[in-house]
Design a protein around this nucleic acid. Sequence first.
DNA 1: TAGATTGTTAATCGATTAACAATC
DNA 2: TAGATTGTTAATCGATTAACAATC
Lengths: 199, 199
Amino acid sequence: MHISSSTIERLPKYLRVLRTFNQNNVSNISSTLIAKELGLNSIQVRKDLALISNLDGKPKVGFDVNELINDIESFFNLKIHQKSIIVGAGRLGQALMNYPSFDNNINIIAAFDIDKNKVDNNKIFYIDEMDKIIKKHKIKIAIITVPKSAAQSICDTLINYGIKVIWNFAPVDLKVPNDVKIRNEDLSASLAILLNGIE
Amino acid sequence: MHISSSTIERLPKYLRVLRTFNQNNVSNISSTLIAKELGLNSIQVRKDLALISNLDGKPKVGFDVNELINDIESFFNLKIHQKSIIVGAGRLGQALMNYPSFDNNINIIAAFDIDKNKVDNNKIFYIDEMDKIIKKHKIKIAIITVPKSAAQSICDTLINYGIKVIWNFAPVDLKVPNDVKIRNEDLSASLAILLNGIE
DNA sequence: TAGATTGTTAATCGATTAACAATC
DNA sequence: TAGATTGTTAATCGATTAACAATC
């Protein structure tokens, strides 16, 4: 069953709402309420949830909050057993290393930089160590937070070392072969959407 | 004329391609080539460009690179005369303050934090200064990079001070009144899309 | 000229929303 | 029970892609 990226984008939002209700000891929740919390349509919420859960909602009562949390988590957990690395331990790289809500999605085991002052050999290593560590841990996922000018060459190197999934924060559209999955996280584009239509 | 957010998202990508070609002294470019560079459909590129430009492409030759750059820039420039601030001068806040490709889109004039060690009174100020600076510069746009737990209350405060457009990086969906525009930059959701379908 | 590329009109595709019977 | 909420089937909406005549 194909799940559209629109749906995938909404699932973490549902998860956050559900966890909040769970913390407040609410045991059941209706699609109507989830939708309201997120400014969405309740039919859409039910359809999304049906795609990733076998759970039946009960008319008038809604869904079991805990079971729904488990279902969404296990949907995502299927993809997260792999470790990942960050290339570029600048401000953005370090911010992402510590970004609180990644805990449940990805395990960043190391960052690399060409600036030896940043190296602590604990989580931040000199870039020459990259090959060794990628191979040792059989890493397939990398996050790129190097400057734009270095991004494509780092990307090529990573692919050379066996990386198959790349999350790129440098403001360039990186070119990768067909067997490598890339997401260019375009903060400028995101900002453009926000600013569009104001004033 | 309404321009969809799908189109708005692609425009900065076109701009980057065009600038690259411009730097290499290429004076004309076809929609086919732009599309190829970005892995898009050329009809889509032409339609997008037609929405924001009066420029006619010439069959067989393509579009004038410089004029197209000007048209996209002025489309965005209509929205950027306002200054903005960042609340939360942690790693992510400082990364965004220095994110290179925002230059053309937004003018971040100050950041605020509750940690006095971060304050330099140059670009980073103690949070108590926020009200004064927002009013002095008539700021309408704010970026939130505080921890999740503080985000909603900072958001409320900002709105109270007159902020109308908010770009939120904390992993919560902030609630705002109808007259305030918000974009919750959900990095976990973005990551979820990337990881979906692998393995 | 020949043909690559354009802009436009029509077709397709997919996502969202509406309608509604089933049911706890 | 009554009615709020469910899941499903059908309708709508909008974005993407295809087809194609015009043209540099």
